[in-house]
Amino acid sequence: MSDAPKPPPKAPAPVAYKAPELRPETLPERAFVPELLRGLAVSTSHFLRNLLFSRDPSPDVLHRRGPNLVSTVQYPEEVAPYPPGYRGMHRLVPRPDGNPRCVACYMCATICPAQCIYIEAGEYPQDPIEKFPRRFEIDELRCIVCGLCVEACPKDAIRMDTGTHCKPTYDRPTIVYGIDRLLKGPAVSHRTDVWFKREGSDPPADGHGHPIPPLPGEGKS
């Protein structure tokens, strides 16, 4: 392999950043003490400004004003505003009658990488949507807020648009959110929803003697 022709010399690759050259130390710098005192002056100025002046309590740290330099956000008394792209915690979307749009199809539970969704399905006796979640629980401690459940949902029943986050708690069971805490926000309905396609919610007792419901587009004679 030593006979392999050497690659031609390359031009130095352009670099985006070049480290500044260090200038040689001056005598006072080598004497150390003046530099120590200058450092002390910096500490002292910060100390005095933060000790003597009030802190601007604005939660937006970058826009705090005044001589006080403290940038702490005193959570939970102060809450920093979320960036505009933040989606927040999920919610169960209600349908116009207040029940969840969810039909307990388990798609979210299937795709959830954290396996934090627990669903128990129930059956509506008289509703065109036969299936509903009797229990729909999300373990917010496990949830990684990845949003895959929103992508997987075929019914637009779970969304991440609340802009809030899960509140901390001292009690582990209370952080498993059920339908009562997840179901919130404005109701949503689509043209493809079943209750637009099918008028009555109760089917005939048997198929004989009853006319089959006409097509919505068909003329009713």
Binding site: E21, P28, R38
Partner: peptide, 17 residues
């Protein structure tokens, strides 16, 4: 010495190329 050192080191660092 303190003032000198302060004057020296507060001059702008060479701009990164």
């Amino acid at each position: 010495a303190l003032l000198w050192s302060g004057a020296k080191s507060t001059q702008p660092a060479p701009a990164p190329a």
